[in-house]
Write a protein that binds this DNA or RNA. Structure first.
Lengths: 179, 179
DNA sequence: TATCTCATGTAAACTGTTACATGATTTT
DNA sequence: AAAATCATGTAACAGTTTACATGAGATA
């Protein structure tokens, strides 16, 4: 299971609570890893009982208590072992494409509307990713080093979103042409 | 649930058995929809009890019996209703990128090996997709019409795979440069 | 006054994966 | 003789989603 390991990757970088982890997933891995807070809390339970992480309660003034988790040595070993295994190919289940595939059942406007809705959110995502890229590129060479590997994943996100948008324009055009 | 609807899309085009459907998923939708035969058999059961499909046993000489399913009117209505709903954004959970993100824990060779493994399979996929595209383009305009919408999904597959390969080259290069 | 963010969780339902099971025909 | 393809499924487990639940402080 990769969610467990994705959590370990984040905790290896820096300890954090379930809430923190959810935000970090959204902010830094949102374009290649998605996990709900419920899932994260459930996995943290499992990681705790397996001894791969430890947790400590921290009180805060004015805010609810947080349970801050740290990776253990055994967790780090588990993570390194996992990294050495070859990855399974990415599984894609794309609802929009199923609809396009069977799109003869509806007006093309129905398909175009769905395409456009996604286009809007992809454009916003692209803007965010490009801003992150600029932030990285603006760093001095000596400062870049710790962000190199995350930068590679960012580049993947940019390729993905740009490819999607280019395709969507082509597809919208063709759908409109065919009436 | 989209698997149910993906099955309905295939059955609306042409009746078929669970085994057929599995093959059709692999051959025509493999780059945007993946489903195991176990999943398909389970979903067919549910579709049957919901009255969205009907099945009939067909004997074959020398081979096991097949249960051939047909979409019902109610199934077609369900499908059309589903098509009118806006799609949820594609969920991507990419293990390889999680490994890259936390890749400081291992030698870059470990990461490169994983990248190359996937590169090999993406290259093969690209060849298949491009061949399908040529088959479509070779058709006379009058013959293309029924394949137009599937062609749009094929284009998406090509964009995706080409984008992945371009990124992988860039990423491999950078990983090697950084030692 | 209402909504958003912080912060944590449970329970039920649904979906998906892995392993097992069977057995005939066809191809290498 | 072995492996692949045809053809169907069950059972146990793992993972995900949706709905529910609580409650404080900050912001509009």
């Amino acid at each position: 299971m990769a969610l467990k390991h994705a959590i370990l990757v984040l905790l290896e970088q820096q300890p954090g609570s379930g809430y923190d982890l959810h935000k970090r997933f959204q902010q830094h891995m949102g374009f290649f890893w998605q996990a709900s807070h419920q899932q994260i809390y459930q996995q943290l339970k499992g990681l705790l009982t397996d001894g791969l992480i430890v947790g400590q309660d921290k009180q805060q003034q004015g805010k609810p208590d947080r349970k801050v988790y740290h990776i253990t040595d055994s967790g780090k070993q588990e993570l390194i072992g996992w990294m050495h295994q070859l990855s399974k190919p990415l599984k894609i289940n794309d609802t929009l494409l199923v609809k396009l595939y069977g799109g003869h059942l509806v007006d093309s406007e129905v398909l175009l509307r769905d395409l456009q809705q996604q286009q809007d959110s992809y454009r916003k995502t692209l803007a965010v990713l490009q801003q992150l890229e600029q932030q990285y590129q603006a760093l001095a060479e000596s400062q870049k080093q710790p962000y190199r590997l995350p930068y590679l994943t960012l580049r993947r996100g940019i390729y993905h979103v740009q490819g999607w948008l280019a395709w969507a324009e082509e597809a919208s055009q063709l759908l409109s042409d065919w009436q």
